[in-house]
Every structure is written in C-alpha cells, then in structure tokens.
C-alpha cells in the first residue's frame, strides 16, 4: 500500500495537505512555470476587496531575524477584474488542486458584497475570509478582534453563499479560542490560523521605522511557535464543541517538519507563505518532505497524524 496523502475536509477532496497562502503566491500565474499550483492541495489567492487598491507607499517590506515585515495595504486588482481576468485562468489551470479565494472588506457590508460575488462565481471551491482586515468604522481595529464582527461577517456571507467558508484569524487577540468559537458558531466550515503578527523595525541612523506605515505584519519562521500554539489551543477548543471544524495551519512553514508540527497540533491542511519567496518550489519541497517523513516513520495515512500531539 502506498502512502495516502489525500485529505477530505471542508466537504472537499484535497489531493494533499499543502496549500500556498494568500498574498504569497499572487493569482497563481506568475509562478506557474516554476511551480504549478496544480501539484498542490490548493491555491489561496491574494485578498480581494470590492475596489482595486493601489496599496501603501514604499518601503512596504523588510527582512527581520528569521522572517519579514510587510505592509502591502491589501493592494489587489479588485473584485471585478479578479472575476473577469484572474479567476478563469486559475480555474483552467487548477487540475486537482482546490481554488480557495481570499476575500475582505473594510466594512461588514463590503465583506458580504465581495464574499457573495466570489461565492457565486464558477471555479471557486472555497472562500477564505481575511478577518485581519481593519474595520474602518470601528477605529481600524481588525474584524477578527471582536466576536460580534466575526459573527456578522461570517453569518452575513453564508446567508448568500453555499461554498465552504474558512475564517482566517489573526493571532493579535487576547483569546483566539473565543474568536474561533464565534466563527464556528456563526457557521464557518473551517479555520485558518494564523495571519501575521504586528511588528516594527526601526532604523537607528534615520531614527524612523523602516516600513512607511510604521507597523508591519511579521511572517516567516519567527512566528511558527506562535502559529503552532494557536492551532494546538484551537484544536483543543474544537474537541469541546459539538461540531468541530477542520483547522488550516499557517505561519513559518518552510519544511516538511514545520508542516508536521502544525498537523500534529491539529491542522488538517497547511499553507506555505513567506517561504515561497525564498524558493519558488518551497511548497512542493514541503510536500515531498512530508511524504518522506511518513514513509520513514511507517505512517500510512497523513490524516492519522492530525492532532496526535495532544495528550490522550
């Protein structure tokens, strides 16, 4: 018997558990020649908002120890151009990979507008809702920071959409477990953990933050222990709920072992983000290393490892 890397979750078949994270793989086309996402479990596209966004002034990114800061400002082509110009290409090139479209808004209404439009389009397998987006009407606090906003966004989109909805949470909160529960309560079919952590780098010579907006989102191996802990905690929380939902582990995954940490903590799927910038085939390498680990450890099914790190 060969190794079984398939995962059935969110009501969808995934050919393997490795996806690429939103904002780190564009719309799938740029890297396609080097890294066709059709080899992977799925592609999560860059966050789409209702209108096209030019994004923040430069500098937008900088290296940090074992990671990077970014403040792109959700630059994206906008809903209409995405549906007309990007999505058809993605759908035609996906093969067996799942197409997950990441959506956001600066108000609950915008979230619902974008989520509904994308949810009704052909070629989309699931929605990932970026709750790390700032809420303009609530003093720019991100939607994922309070239970009411999480409920409004998730339930609002699901009223109009039949596709599986994954709520992507930011770790920048007091109790990620409570927010995860709120999302699931409102109907979310899955949870993506984690988005970036807030960070800052200051240039002592210029006496100013390096990133133009001051703060940036920290990603890369530096945040992996935070992500693994969030997944572990939320997985525990799920076990106490009546209808637990699957978790997608994200944050600093650059190798098979990194991915296995998340899977053992309770993730059914994982996403590779910043590591794509270091090597365009990073996600394929992660997948290959997971397979090699399973083979050398005598694991027959990848799903057998999900949540094994918890005491039994």
């Amino acid at each position: 018997m060969g190794l079984d890397l398939t995962v059935n979750c969110l009501g969808l078949p995934f050919q393997n558990p490795v996806l690429v994270a939103s904002g780190t793989f564009g719309y799938g086309d740029e890297y396609y020649e080097v890294m066709p996402f059709s080899e992977l479990g799925g592609l999560v596209t860059k966050t789409i908002t209702a209108a096209r966004r030019e994004g923040n002034p430069p500098p937008r990114i900088v290296e940090t120890d074992s990671g990077m800061l970014n403040s792109i400002g959700l630059a994206n082509v906008g809903l209409r151009a995405f549906l007309e110009e990007k999505l058809p290409w993605i759908a035609a090139h996906a093969g067996q990979a799942r197409v997950v479209v990441n959506v956001a808004g600066f108000s609950v209404e915008e979230f619902i507008e974008v989520g509904t439009a994308v949810g009704g389009a052909k070629g989309v397998d699931a929605l990932e809702v970026n709750l790390g987006c700032p809420n303009v009407r609530a003093g720019y606090i991100h939607f994922g920071a309070d239970e009411l906003s999480v409920r409004q966004v998730v339930a609002g989109i699901l009223k109009n959409v039949r596709l599986p909805l994954i709520a992507k949470l930011s770790p920048n909160v007091t109790d990620i477990g409570a927010l995860a529960e709120a999302a699931v309560d409102a109907g979310a079919d899955g949870l993506s953990l984690i988005n970036t952590l807030p960070g800052m780098k200051i240039d002592p010579l210029k006496r100013r933050p390096v990133i133009s907006m001051g703060f940036g989102g920290l990603s890369g191996p530096a945040i992996r222990p935070v992500g693994v802990a969030c997944v572990y905690k939320v997985y525990q929380q799920m076990q106490r709920m009546e209808a637990p939902v699957p978790i997608v582990g994200i944050g600093g995954i650059a190798s098979g072992r990194d991915a296995l940490e998340y899977i053992l903590a309770g993730a059914s799927l994982v996403q590779v983000g910043t590591a794509n910038f270091l090597h365009p085939r990073a996600a394929a390498n992660v997948l290959q290393e997971i397979a090699a680990f399973c083979e050398s450890e005598g694991v027959a099914k990848i799903t057998d490892l999900v949540g094994l790190a918890h005491e039994r």
Partner: peptide, 17 residues
C-alpha cells in the same frame, strides 16, 4: 531600487511611485 522579497511580481513589496 526598493526592498524586495519574491523578485517576480508576487508579493507587491517593491513598489516605486
């Protein structure tokens, strides 16, 4: 010149006005 990460148009990190 601008700080870069992916080098091929994906991260949107390196923009010039």
């Amino acid at each position: 010149e601008e700080n870069m990460a992916c080098g091929m148009g994906i991260c949107q990190g390196c923009v010039i006005p």
